[in-house]
C-alpha cells in the first residue's frame, strides 16, 4: 500500500500551527523555512553516512521510527525519522560495514534522528530560537505514516534512497501563553566542526 503525502498541504497552515495560534509568528520561523531546513538537514545527514537520496512524495508502509522530543522558549515538538526494516538494514550495512541486528538497526536510526535534529537545532539557533533535545526513542509498528488530518504536522519530507524510502517529519506547537519569540541569532558549531580549547 502506498500513501501520498503532501508537504504543501502542511505549508498551507502558515500562521496557525496545530491546535494553537502563534500570536507573533516570525517570518524566519515560517512553515516554508522549517520545511526547507528539514529537507536539507535530513538529506545532509544521510549523505554524511554515504546515503544519497532524492525527494519523493510516496511513502510505503513504514515499520520503524525514531522520535525525539524538544522544547524551547514558546516551542515544543518532536522530530521523527521512519523507514522500513529492510531499508534500515540495508542502509545500516552500507554505512557501518556490517549487517548488525534489529537492536543495532534501531540504535542507529535513533542516532540518525539525533543528528538530524542536532543539525536542525543549529539552523534554529541562527534564527534566534534555542531548543533543548530529549533522548531519542524508537518504536516499531505497522503502516507508520504521518496523519495528514493532524494539522500539527507542520513539515515532513520523503526521501528515496536506492534501498528504499526514509521519511522525516517535524511536529511543532506553540502556546498562546508562551508565544515563540526569536532571541538573538547565534552561530552554532556545525557537523564535522572541531574546536580545540
Amino acid at each position: 500500500m502506498t500513501h501520498h503525502v503532501s508537504p504543501e498541504a502542511a505549508i498551507d497552515l502558515d500562521v496557525v500551527w496545530g491546535p494553537m495560534r502563534l500570536d507573533k509568528p516570525s517570518a524566519s520561523l515560517s512553515s516554508e523555512a522549517l520545511q526547507a531546513d528539514l529537507d536539507g538537514c535530513t538529506a545532509e545527514v544521510l549523505a554524511s553516512h554515504g546515503i544519497r537520496v532524492a525527494r519523493d512524495r510516496r511513502v510505503g508502509d513504514l515499520g520503524i521510527a525514531s522520535v525525539i522530543g524538544f522544547t524551547g522558549e514558546g516551542l515544543a515538538g518532536a522530530l521523527g525519522l521512519a523507514t522500513t526494516d529492510p531499508t534500515l538494514a540495508t542502509l545500516y550495512a552500507r554505512s557501518m560495514g556490517s549487517p548488525g541486528d534489529l537492536a543495532a538497526h534501531s540504535d542507529w536510526l535513533r542516532e540518525l534522528s539525533n543528528q538530524v535534529l542536532g543539525r536542525l537545532k543549529g539552523r534554529l539557533l541562527t534564527k534566534g530560537y534555542a531548543i533543548h533535545l530529549a533522548i531519542p526513542q524508537s518504536v516499531r509498528g505497522m503502516s507508520l505514516v504521518p496523519n495528514e488530518s493532524r494539522r500539527s504536522h507542520i513539515a515532513w519530507t520523503v526521501l528515496t534512497s536506492p534501498a528504499g524510502v526514509v521519511l522525516a517529519w517535524l511536529d511543532l506547537e506553540t502556546s498562546d501563553a508562551m508565544a515563540a519569540e526569536a532571541g538573538p541569532s547565534v552561530a552554532p558549531s556545525e557537523s564535522g566542526d572541531v574546536i580545540i580549547f
Binding site: N114, G118, K121, D193, F197
Partner: peptide, 20 residues
C-alpha cells in the same frame, strides 16, 4: 550532535579540551 555555543562554553569551563 550539539553545537550550541552555550554548551561549548560550559564544557570548556568545566575543563574539556575539545568539541567535535
Amino acid at each position: 550532535t550539539e553545537g550550541e555555543p552555550a554548551m561549548v562554553r560550559r564544557a570548556r569551563a568545566a575543563g574539556a579540551r575539545g568539541w567535535i
